[in-house]
């Protein structure tokens, strides 16, 4: 019944709103939204509720640099991760988990608000942490989350070198004991 109601709801909504006049708002549609579904008898009510972000109070930002006249106008300001200048490792799961959806996928750049380079770096670091089995509760469902349950070479502990992220070609590790 609920599914039928939902289909009917989406059909009517599409019929009404898919015309050329669509979502004209005089005020900004702001704030984080949570979608809530309620069933009252035979009707299903779906509404987007504005929710305050739980992260705003704990947010850390770099202090804005002292304004120079000529330089600052031409150059783009650095993104917040570049400005912070943190040396993030793939073992810093508490930082990396902030860039990840609840199903374990990386958030896109329009949501994270990073620069291209930082987005690439964070994506790789998240993949490293997931491969090493450090973010088992935030790993896509189609992956083998627990390394001990994986096959062959994947089941043993692996660590990664963060310097390899932006290397074009990863050099072979120098084996000093080799004869």
């Amino acid at each position: 019944m609920a599914g039928l109601v939902r289909v009917g709801f989406s059909l009517t909504r599409n019929a009404i709103f898919s015309t050329s006049i669509r979502s004209i708002a005089t005020t900004a549609q702001l704030n984080l939204k949570a979608i809530r579904e309620q069933t009252e008898g035979s009707t299903l009510i779906i509404d987007g509720v504005t929710v305050p972000s739980p992260r705003t109070e704990l947010l850390i930002r770099a202090e804005p640099p002292v304004q120079d006249t000529a330089l600052s106008t031409s150059e783009k300001p650095p993104c917040y991760m570049c400005a912070l200048g943190l040396d993030v490792k793939h073992t810093d799961v508490l930082i990396l988990s902030q860039f990840v959806r609840t199903d374990g996928c990386m958030l896109p750049r329009r949501i994270t608000g990073l620069c291209r380079r930082q987005q690439k770096k964070m994506g790789k670091l998240v993949a490293m942490a997931q491969k090493a089995g450090l973010m088992m509760n935030l790993t896509p469902a189609n992956c083998k989350k627990d390394p001990t349950k994986r096959r062959d070479y994947k089941k043993f502990n692996t660590y990664f070198d963060e310097r390899t992220i932006f290397m074009k070609k990863i050099p072979k590790p120098v084996d000093r004991f080799k004869r």
Partner: peptide, 9 residues
């Protein structure tokens, strides 16, 4: 401490 905050919408 958080680094990333969600955009407004």
């Amino acid at each position: 401490p958080k680094v990333m905050d969600f955009p407004e919408d």
